[in-house]
């Protein structure tokens, strides 16, 4: 069949690429996860111990679920803030559309690390925001109330993801046929109705993509919690990092990563199978 030949041609190259540089390394990770240790003789013997430790470890599991909750919130808020941006760009910005898009992307070309340092300048105890609050009399002394908390981690991450979430929403809004909206108006739909019944459903694939762009990296994030999270800010990604780099326990780090992978896959599966999203994503 012509069709299947075309399909294979299109999908072949990306598939080979993914196999070599992604499936193979993940396979290696699975092998790691059964090894007893990273060094010496422990490398050559295989065991299920790390899985058992993981299942029995309350801190690991509690933090995994907490981190998933935080990631969910961050992704939802970042997308809610990004949607109006994308909407404005797609429908109202006119000829300035591309310039505005660039304007929103360019800040991300400054290292993430430096932007976090800059956030500390804003949120820190002698920072911008605290100084303003002091001037306004909202607080009486300068103290680090705004930083070193889960909330600070979330604010920082939302800030980081907004442009990322905006792009897929924008690109799915862009393709909506303007005549469809005009027709809706002609048929007596209010703008809100037209939005809810036409624009929003048609942009859902972009929203789903934007959601994952924020949700997934947040789950494995470890730099932001370190820098602004304070004593209580650690997230699951920090524990993976600790097992991998500090304890030199590659097997445990692999088990923890694979568990995270599993959760996200289940989550993605549910999101795409349940509800109307399956048609939209073409699954």
């Amino acid at each position: 069949m012509k069709n299947s030949r075309r399909f294979l041609t299109l999908i072949g190259l990306p598939s080979i690429y993914l196999f070599l540089l992604f499936i193979l390394p993940v396979g290696l990770m699975v092998i790691f996860s059964f090894r007893e240790g990273t060094t010496g003789a422990a490398r050559d013997s295989f065991t299920l111990d790390h899985y058992i430790t993981f299942i029995n470890s309350r801190p690991f599991q509690r933090l995994l679920w907490q981190s998933a909750g935080i990631s969910f919130l961050v992704a939802v808020i970042a997308n809610s803030l990004a949607y109006p941006l994308a909407y404005y760009l797609a429908f109202q910005a006119g000829s300035q559309k591309n310039t505005l898009m660039m304007l929103l992307i360019i800040p991300t070309w400054t290292s993430y690390l430096l932007r976090i340092f800059a956030w500390k300048l804003i949120l820190g105890s002698t920072g911008l925001l605290n100084s303003v609050l002091l001037l306004l009399g909202v607080i009486e002394t300068l103290s680090p109330i705004l930083i070193y908390s889960r909330a600070a981690v979330m604010v920082t991450l939302i800030y980081v993801w907004i442009p990322f979430a905006m792009l897929p929403i924008f690109s799915s809004l862009e393709r909506i046929d303007r005549y469809l909206l005009e027709a809706a108006a002609d048929l007596g739909c209010t703008r809100l109705e037209a939005f809810l019944r036409i624009t929003l459903p048609l942009s859902l694939p972009g929203v789903v993509a934007g959601f994952f762009f924020a949700f997934i990296p947040t789950l494995g994030e470890f730099v932001t919690p370190l820098l602004v999270g304070g004593a209580q800010g650690s997230m699951y990604g920090n524990l993976i990092q600790d097992q991998f780099m500090r304890a030199l326990n590659w097997p445990m780090g692999s088990v923890m990563s694979l568990s995270m992978l599993l959760i996200v896959l289940v989550f993605m599966f549910l999101l795409t199978r349940l509800g109307p999203l399956s048609d939209l994503l073409g699954l």
Binding site: L18, V26, I216, G220, I240, F244, M260, V264
Partner: peptide, 27 residues
């Protein structure tokens, strides 16, 4: 194309989002 294999492809191609980069790097 509505052909078999695309579901798996979509799942696999989006999975790199989920792997902590440290581990992908070491592997």
């Amino acid at each position: 194309f509505n052909l078999p294999g695309r579901g798996i492809f979509l799942a696999v191609s989006t999975m790199p989002l989920v792997i902590p980069y440290v581990i992908l790097g070491v592997a």
